[in-house]
Every structure is written in structure tokens, then in C-alpha cells.
Write a protein that binds this DNA or RNA. Structure first.
Length: 158
DNA sequence: GCCAACGTTGGC
DNA sequence: GCCAACGTTGGC
């Protein structure tokens, strides 16, 4: 069972939005980056995911979710009216994929990017912390997953 | 194949 | 709002 991290801007779609969806499930559409797409195509049902709030006042991991449907074509790529419409993608050979994710729980407290950086030494190779890393879908090593979840139980830093 | 220009991401 | 880092596009 693999672990992942997926970013979303909370102004657009937050952990609360996911929790409020029917069946607390959402199709993770709009990814238009090949590396991120390829990671999604590797996801298996039951894989665990950190829900990361990006581009906001306090970026960080806000909750947990899991994969409930493995990769299939992102329908928004064929929708002319959609912001993520891709005229170069053909239905017979879809370029972009998505997975369905399901809410698991909110973290008891947000684990901020700043806090994660304090633990950089214990998270070697964690792509989120790499300089210039902007990928919205990244793999998380299991030992990193466990370490980060243990931080939740500690009191907030500062 | 190179690389400049451009658009996007996302922390701060 | 600024800007660094990155990905993509397209001229040559």
C-alpha cells in the first residue's frame, strides 16, 4: 500500500469541501502536469493520501484521504467550457487522468510546511521539501508517512 | 536540439 | 503582490 500527498488550494477545494461531498468522495480533476499524472496512474485502490493545503496563509497537511477509484480519463479535458479544457487531447487517446479520492479524517491540527521543514533531517528525500518542488501529486515513503503522523500527537510548535 | 519567452505554481 | 523555480511552447 503506497502513500501519497496531493495539493489543493483551500480557497478552491479544501478538506472541508471533501468532507461535505456526497459519499465524501471527489474526482481529483484538473491535474495538467505529466509527472503528477504519472503518479496518479500508479495509484491503487486503498492507497493513503495526505491532503495538503497550498497557496494559502498557512500551507500544510490538513487531513487524510484514500484512493477509491484508480486512474481513468479526466472528463474535464474534453469539456470546452471547462477551465482545464485541453483541445490537444483526443477522446480515443486521453492525455490526462484522475483518481477518485475519499475523505478519511481531518488532522487534529494542521501540520504546517514550516513545521515539516523543522523535521527535514528526519524526512530525507521528501519531495515536498525539495527546493523548487511544485508537483501537486508526490509519493510519500511509508516511514515518512508514519513519522509525520506522529507529529500530529505532539503539541504545536512555537 | 537549443533556448528564449511565456505561463504557472506556490511560498513568503 | 512579488518573485524564484519550473514546465511548455515554438522559432530557428
Amino acid at each position: 500500500m503506497a502513500c501519497w500527498l496531493m495539493k489543493s488550494e483551500p480557497d478552491t477545494f479544501s478538506i472541508d469541501d471533501l468532507a461535505n461531498r456526497p459519499r465524501q468522495t471527489e474526482a481529483w480533476d484538473g491535474v495538467r502536469n505529466y509527472q503528477a499524472r504519472n503518479f496518479m496512474r500508479r495509484m491503487k485502490k486503498g492507497d493513503r493520501i495526505f491532503f495538503y493545503h497550498s497557496n494559502c496563509a498557512v500551507p500544510g497537511i490538513a487531513g487524510l484521504m484514500c484512493v477509491v477509484a484508480e486512474a481513468y480519463p479526466d472528463p474535464t479535458q474534453f469539456d470546452k467550457k471547462h477551465h482545464h479544457y485541453d483541445p490537444t487531447s483526443k477522446p480515443e487517446e486521453p492525455r490526462w487522468s484522475l483518481v477518485d479520492v475519499q475523505f478519511e479524517r481531518r488532522l487534529k491540527r494542521l501540520i504546517s510546511l514550516a513545521e515539516l521543514r523543522e523535521h527535514e533531517a528526519q524526512l530525507p528525500g521528501f519531495q515536498l521539501l525539495m527546493k523548487g518542488s511544485r508537483l501537486s501529486v508526490i509519493p510519500v515513503r511509508e516511514e515518512h508517512w508514519d513519522y509525520i503522523l506522529k507529529l500530529e500527537k505532539k503539541s504545536a510548535p512555537g
